[in-house]
Write a protein that binds this DNA or RNA. Structure first.
Length: 268
DNA sequence: ACCTAAACCTGGGCGC
DNA sequence: TGCGCCCAGGTTTAGG
């Protein structure tokens, strides 16, 4: 559940069920995936949740925090008291004092959870959709500084936070921009269009509670799939007819090691 | 500064 | 059924 809409969906659902609860025990089945000392949060009460780009945050009353990154296949599942979801690939289990629990599953073991003793917000130049700094002007400034392909730049987490392969592809299609164009070649009108497309696509994906694509690894906190995959315009649709009116075909090419899906006729 | 490939791991889908 | 190959929502690191 890697990108911004999926992490935000999980955060909201998690917020509804875990705030106010106390962690009774942390069961670490895969030691490499837990960074820090689990004692930092054991016995501590959750006071809130947050998110920075693709990183989920859980805040505790003692000033500590848990950070979670799902990478490609990570999942959070919540079991109310008495329920035990049979789940494959469970790596870390958080037992709460009321008998409920939170499972961190990850088939590929790429994800991680980190316990931080005294959480402090770190300075960062990265701009992030839905935050105040994600303005057309700031996006234009970021893009103007690089000749790298626009799609690669959108996915660079040091520059723009939260956008991954799905939403970079979808946003560029919606904006009608060729993913291979140098970022600094975009005209002001195009940056404006792209900015609008990113926010519209991400918001719709959040409304859909995320994308469960072909592989269907992403799940909501209760195990349900999201529905944004039903709205994919180009992602994983190579070989199909372009959803625009051009009559062309959706193509796939590799870019920076990732699949880029686009329509050469609609995206200039 | 930029690019690529490989690495971290594992599962699913496809062709044969 | 099985095997080999390709693909995968992310990030980091090594090498050119």
């Amino acid at each position: 559940m890697p990108e911004l809409p999926e992490v935000e969906t999980i955060r909201r659902q998690l917020n509804d069920v875990v705030v106010g609860k106390t962690v009774a025990r942390v069961d670490i089945l895969e030691p490499n995936m837990f960074i820090g000392d689990p004692e930092t949060i054991t016995g501590q009460k959750i006071i809130g949740t947050g998110r920075r780009a693709k990183v989920l945050r859980i805040f505790f009353a003692n000033g500590s925090a848990l950070l979670a990154h799902f990478k490609l296949n990570g999942q959070f599942f919540y079991d109310p008291p008495g329920k035990q979801t049979p789940a494959r690939f469970t790596r870390i289990i958080f037992d709460f004092s009321d008998g409920s629990r939170l499972l961190f599953n990850d088939s590929r073991k790429f994800g991680w959870i980190k316990a931080i003793k005294d959480f402090k917000e770190e300075e960062s130049a990265m701009i992030e959709p839905f935050k105040d700094d994600f303005t057309v002007d700031n996006l234009a400034a970021v893009l103007s500084k690089s000749r790298r392909p626009i799609k690669v730049l959108l996915m660079d987490q040091d520059k723009v936070g939260g956008i991954g392969n799905i939403y970079a592809n979808e946003s560029l299609f919606k904006a009608g921009i060729d993913p291979f164009r140098p970022a600094n070649s975009l005209k002001p009108e195009e940056v404006k269009k792209l900015h609008k497309a990113i926010l519209a696509i991400l918001q719709k994906a959040i409304d859909c509670k995320g994308s469960s694509g072909k592989d269907e690894w992403y799940r909501q906190l209760n195990g349900s799939t999201g529905c944004y995959q039903e709205h994919f315009l180009v992602y994983q649709r190579d070989g199909q007819v372009c959803p625009g009116s051009c009559g062309g075909e959706v193509l796939r090419q590799t870019q920076a090691g990732r699949g880029t899906f686009y329509c050469a006729k609609c995206q200039k």
